[in-house]
Design a protein around this nucleic acid. Structure first.
Length: 396
DNA sequence: GACCCTTTGAAGATT
DNA sequence: AATCTTCAAAGGGTC
């Protein structure tokens, strides 16, 4: 999705987090989900086979999602508000955050599957967002340092006070803000209404992918938990500060190890020291990645698919089918994720991981890119895939 | 075993 | 400033 005036340079990457929500009275734009999810798999499979479908493909033109999008030109994904506006919206738009219970960062309210005894929070059953049906919270990666390391002390559900000192890299503008990043709402965790949980919403009321078997949340939950392999649980992903973080990837052999401090010059190391290399710090997950992580198990269960490429296509469509409110939640989670990432690894840059994934066929990627920059039209590689009459003015 | 595929978003790099 | 490139997750498939 193209960023509109992303401009980087934001204090904490706050340019992405909020979508421009239009009038409150807007008709619920959630498409009849089943109408297109029923076709997800069929469409996907056919499209996978006929990957080079023409731009005028009837299937593409008839895609309800596309129609929905183009019929709602005011839904401009890339329109995002700065933080202060976002915050303003939060307060001014109780409907968006469902009764102002969203004033705090949800992950502070998470039940903690990593409790020493493995038990869930007694509140978990009240907070769907905390305990998704399939057990993978979009902020799952945040859990480890949210509870274990943020709950110590009454004031700081955040970072150890000396973290930046240890890092040796300072971002004064951030550090001063740290205490305000994850304010616990006065209401506390117990007052989160189920309505705020997108899991509780009937986003996918019917099984998708054309499969009739109902989605089994129990199965999904079990599957999710069983497949859940968090770095913390694996005993790795420990930050140098002692804070475990999922972004820290232990030396697995696949990726090179690199010190997270890019200010340090890479030094030729003896082979024997390779084993002691520090883990790679991964990029924080963006909103869509969080959404994928959350919903993947569900799609797999619904569609009995395992191929990630196919699943991701479905998820991409579903992502666009989400209401702005629902997407906004993920943008917010992603923003918090980035904030926390920046606090934990002040010297880290996405650049640090450049070159760690070797691309075998750059030409393909260039081709795909040249086919049209990715846009709010998602999987449509060319806008012509959508009849012109459905295209927003800005696209025409 | 490493990379591809596939998605969107963020951020760095390049033009 | 606009555009391009890379990586983040995931797991079956491919080489």
């Amino acid at each position: 999705m193209p960023q509109l005036g992303s401009g980087g340079g934001d204090d904490l990457g706050a340019t992405d987090e909020m979508l421009a929500f239009k009038d409150e009275g807007e008709q619920e734009e959630k498409i009849p989900e089943n109408a297109f999810t029923e076709r997800d798999l069929a469409d996907l499979k056919s499209s996978l086979v006929n990957e080079s479908e023409g731009s005028g493909s009837p299937a593409a033109a008839a895609d309800p999602e596309a129609i929905r999008r183009v019929q709602d030109p005011q839904r401009v994904y890339q329109e995002k508000l700065p933080d202060h506006m976002e915050d303003g919206m939060k307060h001014q738009d109780p409907g968006m955050y469902k009764g102002s219970t969203y004033s705090g960062y949800p992950f502070l309210m998470l039940s903690d599957p990593y409790l020493p005894n493995g038990s869930m929070s007694p509140l978990s059953n009240k907070v769907p967002v905390v305990q998704p049906s399939h057990g993978v919270h979009p902020l799952t990666p945040l859990i480890p340092y949210s509870n274990d390391h943020f709950s110590h002390g009454s004031h700081s559900p955040h970072l150890p006070a000396d973290i930046n000192q240890k890092q040796g890299v300072h971002r004064p503008s951030q550090t001063s803000d740290i205490p305000g990043f994850y304010p616990l709402p006065p209401a506390g965790v117990g007052q989160i209404t189920p309505s705020m949980g997108w899991q509780s919403q009937s986003v996918y009321p019917l099984p998708s992918c054309g499969f009739r078997q109902p989605y089994s949340s129990a199965l999904s939950a079990g599957a999710s938990f069983s497949r859940f392999t968090h770095p913390l649980m694996l005993g790795s992903g420990m930050h140098t500060t002692g804070i475990p973080h999922p972004a820290i990837v232990p030396h697995s052999g696949k990726q090179e190890m690199e010190h997270y401090d890019r200010n340090m010059k890479p030094q030729p190391e003896p082979k024997r020291e390779k084993e002691a290399k520090k883990p790679t710090i991964k990029k924080p997950l963006n909103a869509f990645m969080l959404y994928m992580k959350e919903m993947r198990a569900k799609v797999i269960a619904e569609c009995t698919l395992k191929e990630s490429a196919a699943i991701n296509q479905i998820l991409g469509r579903r992502w666009h089918a989400l209401s702005r409110e629902e997407q906004a939640k993920y943008y917010e989670l992603a923003r918090k994720e980035r904030q926390l990432h920046m606090q934990l690894y002040p010297g880290w840059s996405a650049r640090d991981n450049y070159g760690k994934k070797k691309r075998r066929t750059r030409e393909k990627q260039q081709d795909s890119n040249s086919g049209g920059k990715r846009s709010a039209f998602g999987t449509y590689k060319e806008k012509d895939a959508v009849p012109a009459q459905f295209l927003p003015m800005e696209v025409l």
